[in-house]
């Protein structure tokens, strides 16, 4: 099981702030994960409608699309950051 955590409008659109998912073995990279999540329902489809706008963190560190998610304890999905 992998813990997924969502923030800001990604959290609002998916309708939850976190969940534990059993990811299929075919989901190897961050890019694969985004594509897979979009198949889970219309709320995911709405949240990930523009995948380029989504930022991903593996174990609380920013991750690029090609990075592998094997062994990740926690994966965060969120929009571009607007702090400061």
């Amino acid at each position: 099981m992998t813990r997924l955590v969502y923030f800001a409008w990604v959290r609002e659109r998916i309708g939850k702030s976190e969940e534990d998912l059993d990811l299929p073995a075919s989901v190897e990279t961050v890019g694969d994960l985004l594509a897979h999540l979009r198949t889970l329902g219309e709320e995911y489809e709405a949240a990930l409608e523009f995948p380029d706008a989504i930022r991903v963190a593996i174990n609380q560190e920013h991750a690029e699309r090609h990075e592998r998610i094997a062994g990740a304890r926690e994966i965060g999905l969120f929009p571009p950051m607007t702090g400061g």
Binding site: F7, A57, M81, T82, G83, G84
Partner: peptide
Amino acid sequence: VMDYLKTSAPFWKK
């Protein structure tokens, strides 16, 4: 620090 924080620290404003 401010320039990096703006684009990479995970905070969001509503």
